[in-house]
Amino acid sequence: MGSPSQQVFWFASQALGIIAMLLLAVAVSLGLAMSGRVIRRPGLPARLKHFHEASTLVTLGLIAGHGGLLLLDGYLRPGLAGITLPFALSYRPLFTGLGVIAGWLALILGLSFYVRKRIGTRTWRSLHRFTIVVYLLALTHAVGAGTHGQSVWMLALLAGLTAPIVFAFTYRVLPASVAPRALSG
């Protein structure tokens, strides 16, 4: 081992994980911005809704690719249980376990949109609020489990992705009468 050519799947998995994190941040930011009515331009929310839905679906695909490519890594050899069961992987079990939980939660919460008529819009909305938990779990996973998780560039990237989410989340949870003043002042 040691030759980079033998670690292609490991690097590909990491790359997909990074892009999944990026797109998850975009999806969460957009969702919060739309629900908090941060974006008010007429006609824009409909287009953003498409982008929110599309980025969520692509994120789910990237998460599947992130885990799936690890199966092909001859060094880690996580096995199907390692990438699907929380805390089953011997490599940094806590942080990889949190990543697995984040993946499953993302799948459940993301796809719940398509059964919202069956489960009821109110239930779906309540479930959808937990998306922020997915982001926090993914963030913890990226910092703790990623081999570059504590690199300056990775921390800077994650901080850059998290900042708009913190802003949109704060704006969303602030009472309606406080939010505009908080923004203008």
Binding site: F11, L23, E53, L62, H148
Partner: peptide, 26 residues
């Protein structure tokens, strides 16, 4: 069709974007 177009666009962009971290890591 609008959603599919957006979906395809985001998917292609994401896969192309993944080349950057992959190349850097490699």
């Amino acid at each position: 069709p609008q959603l599919y177009r957006t979906l395809l666009g985001v998917a292609v962009a994401a896969l192309l974007a993944a080349w950057l971290p992959f190349s850097l890591l490699y």
